[in-house]
Write a protein that binds this DNA or RNA. Structure first.
Lengths: 152, 152
DNA sequence: CTATTAGTCTAGTAAGTTAATCGACTTAGT
DNA sequence: ACTAAGTCGATTAACTTACTAGACTAATAG
């Protein structure tokens, strides 16, 4: 399950993607636009900044902006940073592997075999979907909705 | 992330699948074979029983056994029962749908669109994989390992 | 150079979840 | 009646989540 933290992060990154190249955006603006508790959002943006995904400027005219293009930030990267590994079990994680203590033979553990499939399917989607892709999908959905409206 | 509870449940069901048709198995036996805390396992098996996935007999010669064939119990069903919905967000769950309060238009929410893909991919794997499939996979892996050993 | 704006950092905390454990109770077989 | 074995209710320690408070630091305008 995606935590609120990560959901907020993705919402905030959505705003900053739309605003990409237009200068910094205030934490308060993002918080208000997406109904995110301001102080909580601070922590989140800071974490994204320490990771390099975001950059910021202090003082008047300051705010946050993306550290690289929306097409260079994957949803998977954001989720891993804030929620931890995508894998449903540590023993099938590529980025945070840890063997199960009680497992005799990892290669013949049925649960592991199935969960590895899940991990791979999840990672394939999330690592190949960028913020730009996400906005693109929204665009497509909006256009589709509009064409439906006009059709009525 | 899969909880220990669900992991234990799948391990226990693995044992009961292997023993399917051979009469009841003791909680203590399962606990010992899979290194699961006995008392914790009780709760888990009880939950699976109330759901109909397991059946039990009390008193001497009693124990637990599958309520239906291993090929009729999906991994997805077990996970949903013990861990809740597979979906990473309630708004993309088929079995426990709940709209996001702050979402204006669900159909044009980027996060939702991406997470729906993840949910569908996950559900496709977990709902189509049964306990029998899981054991089959293990068998295949074991055979493969053995053929490698002989080759040395 | 100082007032204001805006991000940074350290704590703390209430509520909820997870992973158990304990002990009394019930039912079934010999 | 005795014993084996599952059932049930309560409790708990540790951890995580989703915040909030407040002091601090840096940048810009005038």
């Amino acid at each position: 399950m995606l935590s609120k933290k990560t959901k907020y992060a993705l919402k905030a990154l959505g705003v900053l993607s739309k605003e990409y190249g237009q200068g910094p955006v205030l934490i308060s603006d993002i918080a208000q636009r997406e109904s995110i508790p301001r102080k909580f959002l601070e922590l989140i943006l800071l974490e994204l900044k320490n990771d390099g995904t975001l950059q910021s400027r202090k003082g008047k005219g300051g705010g946050y902006f993306l550290g690289r293009a929306p097409s260079q930030i994957s949803v998977g990267h954001v989720i891993r940073l804030l929620d931890g590994p995508l894998a449903p079990l540590p023993c099938v994680s590529k980025t945070a592997y840890m063997r199960c203590r009680e497992c005799r033979d990892e290669h013949t553990c049925g649960i592991r075999i199935v969960m590895k499939e899940v991990r791979d399917a999840t990672a394939k989607i999330l690592d190949s979907t960028t913020l730009a892709d996400m906005l693109g999908r929204v665009e497509a959905a909006v256009t589709h909705n509009e064409s439906l409206s006009y059709a009525i």
